[in-house]
């Protein structure tokens, strides 16, 4: 395996959890809900994924457990913000704190145990092609799932009636309600989708990225995913670009450091943030496009008149 090939493979590995969490949050925000609990849902996905995989010795059961944990956390958020009308910002922050604390508690018994690695899909012949094989066909199922979910989300949002309804609910919930759409139900669905994606992102961390349980192993990726959504102006294609750009600059920084180039490590580790923000600011320079894609109702509670 050549060095270049290794770099590309690590970039894909670093970008996948960001992409998964960001595309889920994008759909949630498109429906007008700001869920700041991505980090908490992600870490719960990581610990539950690891615990289930270790107990059952099946990585796929771990993935399923991560998904369920993410959805469960997000449904708690949905119940609080949509049914009980609590503040989305405060509830989202609490969800992150809850996730970090609860995952530490659950994970205590699993710290330091050998992990179960999610196997790469081994496609006969295709995976064996030199260079292209490992890069295109040598990944685990979650890498492909992240790309498929992104493409699927873009298709649903822009090509289907369901996507139109989600955009409408996020753009003007009073109008959507007046037209007879169930705003709360649509938002429950989008929040659960976002939670599921965050859970998968977490499971990817503890089953593929570093197959073990380490406390706080999400280390801020949930926040990066949140920022990616905003800077991508709620467009799935840009979230994909942003996630991979971030992953690429991050990995390059590590390699540059390993090569012993005399750049302060702090600068290198802040570089992905700077590059991603600058790049996304440049591509989001079109104000009309930004305004059209921004969910106008984001963060606002909706209570139908009775």
């Amino acid at each position: 395996m050549g060095a270049f090939e290794a770099v590309i493979l690590t970039i894909i590995t670093a970008s996948t959890p960001l992409l998964l969490a960001a595309i889920g949050e994008l759909v949630t925000e498109r429906s007008g809900v700001l869920n700041l609990g991505v980090e908490g849902m992600m870490i719960m996905g990581a610990v539950c994924g690891f615990a289930a995989a270790y107990t059952s010795q099946s990585a796929m059961l771990g993935v399923a457990a991560g998904l369920i944990a993410g959805v469960g956390m997000s449904l708690l958020f949905a119940f609080l913000t949509q049914t009980l009308m609590t503040s989305q910002v405060a509830t989202g922050l609490s969800l992150t704190l809850l996730g970090l604390g609860l995952s530490g508690l659950i994970g205590e018994a699993f710290t330091g145990l050998p992990g179960i690695k999610l196997a790469a899909l081994d496609i006969p012949f295709l995976s064996d092609i030199p260079f292209i094989g490992p890069i295109l066909f040598g990944h685990d199922i979650l890498v492909y799932a992240s790309l498929a979910i992104t493409a699927g989300a873009a298709y649903v949002l822009f090509r289907t009636r369901l996507g139109l309804i989600i955009t409408a609910v996020g753009g003007n919930h009073h109008s959507a309600h007046a037209l007879g759409y169930n705003v709360i139900r649509v938002r429950y669905g989008c929040i659960a989708f976002g939670g599921g994606c965050s859970g998968l992102a977490g499971a990817y961390l503890s089953l593929a990225y570093t197959p073990q349980w380490i406390e706080n192993m999400s280390s801020g990726r949930g926040w990066i995913a949140l920022a990616l959504v905003v800077f991508s102006t709620w467009l799935p294609g840009r979230v994909l670009i942003g996630a991979y750009l971030f992953g690429a600059v991050w990995i390059m920084g590590l390699y540059v450091q390993a090569l012993g180039v005399a750049i302060p490590a702090q600068l290198l580790s802040s570089l992905p943030y700077l590059v991603t923000i600058v790049a996304l600011i440049i591509i989001s320079g079109n104000k009309t496009l930004t305004k059209v894609n921004t969910p106008a109702c984001i963060g606002q509670p909706f209570a139908p008149e009775r």
Binding site: L164, T167, G171, N172, H174, S175, K291, N293
Partner: peptide
């Protein structure tokens, strides 16, 4: 026809109308 229109600024005329019609 509402006094404060129940329209979605960010959508096209067709999309706005489609939202009010049967699936």
């Amino acid at each position: 026809v509402f006094q404060h229109f129940s329209l979605f600024d960010a959508l096209t005329v067709t999309q706005n109308i489609a939202l009010a019609l049967p699936p």
